[in-house]
Each structure stands twice: as C-alpha cells, then as structure tokens.
Design a protein around this nucleic acid. Structure first.
Length: 451
RNA sequence: GCCGGGAUCGCCUAGCCUGGUAGGGCGGCGGCCUGCUAAGCCGUUGGGGGAAACCCCGCGUGGGUUCAAAUCCCACUCCCGGCGCCA
C-alpha cells in the first residue's frame, strides 16, 4: 500500500480534512471514506479466512481416500455457500470505497495561499508593461503589485479587433456559421506565427533534453476518466459518436497514459516530455466569457511539458517546469506575472499550481497563458503508474507534473495586443524570427494588414 | 475485414493435450563465503490484508463449468504472420 492519499486516510485523516476544507469542499467525504475503508478491510479479512478454510478442504480432496471424498466435497460446498454472499458484499463495499476514493481531490500544498481565486498570490511581475493613461483601475493594480509599467497616451486595440478587422487574418463569424461559436479560421501570417511559436517552444524544450512526442489525439473512456476529475471531464471533453473514444483536451493526458498500468524503473526517472497536440475543449463551464476572438476556443495547438518523477524530486521538477515556461514565455518579450494559485482554485488533480498570466494592454489586466501543476501521485494512482527502486528495495506511485510550454491561440492574442503599434501593425517577437526565415512567404519582422 | 498463430511472476521459458501447491534460466536486491573481484551457496524479487505469525488474490481481460482452472468451455482485447482494402 503506497498511495499517499490512502495512507493519509488510514494514518492522518485530519490532514486530509484540513486540505479538503481549504478547497472549500465538504470534508465529510473524508470520514465517509475512512469508514468505507474500514468496512472493506473487515470484510476482506473475514473472507480471507473462509477462503483459506475452503482451500484447505479442497487440497485434501486430491489426496483423500475415495470414501472420504464425498464428505469433504460436501464441506467445501458448504463453505462456498457462505462465501458466495459474502463475496458479493465485499464487491459492493470495494466498489463503494473505490468510487469514494476517486472523488477525492488531491492534498493541497502547505505553501499554497488559502482561499478562493482572489487569494492567489502574485509571486513576481516581469517585463515592461504598457498601460493606457485612462485605465485607472489597471494603473492601481500595477502600483499595488509593484510592476514596472509605462503609461501610454493611446489605447491598444483588443486582439479580436486586430485579428479580424485591422489585420484581417482571422474569421470567426464564418467558422461560427459552419461549425459553431469559439471556432475560427486563421490565414497566412497568423498561421505562420502559430507555427513559429510551436517550433520555438519545441526548440527550447528539446535543447533542455525533453523528449519530443506526438501522442494519440483520442483516448479510451476508461483511460481519460482516470487522468482527470469528473468536473473537468464534463466541462471539457468531447466524445466521438458511436466509439468509446474521447478527444484530448491537452497532450498532458495521452502522455500520462504512456505508462498506463506500468511500473517504471527508478533509474529511468525522471522522464521528461515535450508533447505537441491539438487541444479540444468544450468550455462548457465558461458560458458567455470571452466570446470575441480566439482567447477561449474549442480547438487550439499546444506544446506541453510533462514529467514522470520520483516522489522526492517532484517539487524541484515543478520549479524546473515553471522556469522552462517562464523562459519560453518571457523570451517572447511579453510582460507577465507568475501567480501561486490559491487552494480553492487548484482543480482536483493539483497539489500546487502556478499560472503565468500575460499582460493584455487592451483589456488592462493579466490573462492566463500557462498553467503549471504538480499532481503528486493523484494521477498515477488512478492510472496505476508505479515505480520500482531496486537498489533501495522500494516501490510506490510516481509523481506526475505538467505545464504548458506554449498554447498557440492564447499566445497569439498576447502578441497581437502587446506588439501592436499605434498605426495598426504587429511586430514579430525577435525570438520567433529565425523560425520564419525558412519560409519564403512567411512574415519576417512585422505583420501588416492583409491586402 | 478474412484466415492462421500467440499472450505465463522484470526478461526468457516449462506447464495446457490428460484440471490438484506455477517449475527452470537470466537479471535485481539481501546474506554467507572471500585479501579484492569472479565463481559458488542460501534467501528474496506481482497485488492486497494483517502489529506479527501468516493468509488471500494473481498465468492478456471478462464470464462459465468444477470441491479444485495457467490447464476445459464462451466472449472480448492486443500482438505476430498471410490475404484483402486504403491515405
């Protein structure tokens, strides 16, 4: 037995109750599980004794004189009769216990700020922020956070306006007509920009030794349900009709599934991946948020960082993923802040989470670009991914970590707002230019309005 | 899609016909022996319950037959080979 949450349920349920409370969830689930686990173990013990009795009788039959056989078989059947109903009870108890365990959210870090979304703590603000002189609220926020900002006399246009009306490289109206809202057509220079972003992130990640991977874009129900919590499943996941297949919402999930039901040798850990994939999201919980443009869409591309690690190295690797993400996003020259997500806003899988939010001059606020989580053994328990450390004669569940490296459409929105000039042109971030040089028709320094 | 072959405790493999404690080799770990290494010998090396002694479950998955299933029966999954179809 080595799943950390089960150990806590048996040895220190108070810790878990505290953790669940910090998520603003009902802690009675914990006592419910403690009891369900006890009941299950008691029943299991009872049954093990009966099975032993049955096995003993049964093995005697093989060696018995034929005149004794009938009597022994009668006894064996008698025990089986009792076992039958008890095994049904055990199955029920086990199912109940397992269902309850699967509803449990992860432990939360002692360091995470406690409270709802508003309690999330800004760790740092990086880059030179442009803020319009009329955006008083934004200026106040920046003063409060201690960000380095300059006041501009003109107000940047929103990314949707830039994309569709100024540059004319996007069409969400037609996509809405033929597919639905939150879909888009992108053209020419923005397509080149998207590919440059993805190549840039792939380049950075592979230089750091991460293994590049294109995972399956669909997963079986059993697998995808084991890697995410039920809320995310309901809000985000598309199902393929008439198949037991689901479109992935991030490469995180199929990369985690790379070791589904496997045991990894400790000497091979950590395993680090940079995965490319499209991401399909229903955005069911998002109602009317961000309906304009391509900030919140049903389909985009992403390079995702994913790590399988030993328990003792996951906190350090979490910092590594964050610093990779900062290097990539910061390298674009877009001002951002890093926030330490509060306990009430973590999501069931995460033990601790950092977000990187870009400054959006037109909106006068920071918006999420990157999310970087340490899931400890929450996912690996559900996916049954273990490690074995033969040198130290030790076994357990691996820790999993994930972070965006780059998310295509969101990053494009940040570029459109931060790199636009007063005359409606968008400069291309310097780090992306070498990935555009290769292509004859790709834009090189600026994106000009489409003719 | 069709036909045939296959899936055994980390790896390799025996056992299946003929139901009765899953055996051997390699590798790992621990120990003994040893000037050191190697060899050799002993133990251990899937999951779970138990403070422990110990016990239960496990031979791709799920059912069935039986006192008893790796072994017999049914269904499914995946892999290999051949044929067909196809970007």
């Amino acid at each position: 037995m080595s799943w950390s949450l089960l150990e806590i349920i048996r040895n220190n349920p108070e810790r878990l109750i505290d953790s669940v409370k910090k998520r603003n969830m009902d802690p009675s689930i914990v006592t419910e599980i403690v009891n369900a686990d006890k009941e299950w173990r008691n029943k299991l013990n009872e049954i093990n004794k009966l099975r032993h009795e049955h096995n003993t009788i049964s093995s005697k039959i093989a060696r018995a004189e034929s005149k004794d056989k009938d009597e022994l078989m009668r006894k064996a059947k008698e025990v089986l009769n009792i076992l039958e109903s008890k095994e049904r009870e055990l199955k029920d108890l086990e199912f109940k216990r397992e269902q309850l365990l699967l509803t449990l959210p992860n432990l939360v870090s002692e360091i995470s700020p406690v409270g709802d979304e508003s309690a999330s703590r800004t760790i740092k603000v990086v880059g030179k922020i442009k803020v319009y002189e009329g955006d008083k609220e934004a200026i106040n926020l920046l003063k409060q956070l201690g960000g380095d900002y300059e006041i501009t006399s003109w107000k940047a246009k929103g990314h949707a306006e830039m994309l569709e009306n100024v540059l004319k490289y996007g069409n969400t109206l037609k996509a809405g007509e033929v597919t639905g809202s939150r879909f888009y057509y992108l053209f020419d220079d923005i397509v080149w920009l998207e590919f440059a972003l993805l190549l840039y992130a792939m380049d950075q990640m592979t230089v750091k030794g991460y293994t590049l991977v294109i995972p399956p874009y669909m997963l079986k129900g059993e697998v995808i349900k084991s890697v995410i919590d039920l809320d995310t499943f309901k809000d985000a996941i598309y199902k393929v009709a008439d198949e037991d297949l689901f479109l992935i919402a991030t490469a995180e999930h199929p990369i985690a599934a790379l070791h589904y039901n496997e045991t990894i040798e400790a000497e091979n850990l950590p395993e680090k991946f940079a995965g490319f994939s499209p991401a399909f999201r229903k955005e069911a919980g998002a109602a009317n948020k961000d309906m304009k443009g391509i900030f919140r869409v049903h389909q985009f591309h992403k390079i995702e960082q994913f790590v399988f690690s030993l328990p003792e190295t996951s906190e350090a690797l979490h910092q590594e993923l964050l610093s990779n993400a900062e290097e990539i996003f910061g390298g674009l020259g877009i001002p951002y802040r890093v926030i330490d997500i509060a306990t009430g806003d973590l999501g069931a899988c995460a033990y601790r989470k950092f977000d990187i939010e870009a400054w959006m001059p037109a909106q006068g606020r920071f918006r999420e670009m990157i999310s970087c989580s340490n899931c400890l053994d929450w996912q690996s328990y559900r996916m049954n991914i273990r490690f074995v450390d033969r040198k130290n004669n030790r076994k357990g569940y691996v820790h999993t970590l994930n972070s965006t490296a780059i998310a295509s459409t969101r990053t494009i929105t940040a570029i459109l707002e931060n790199y636009q000039t007063e005359d409606g042109v968008v400069e291309i971030p310097k780090v992306l230019r070498k990935y555009l040089e290769l292509f004859t028709k790709a834009p090189k320094e600026f994106i000009y309005p489409r003719k």
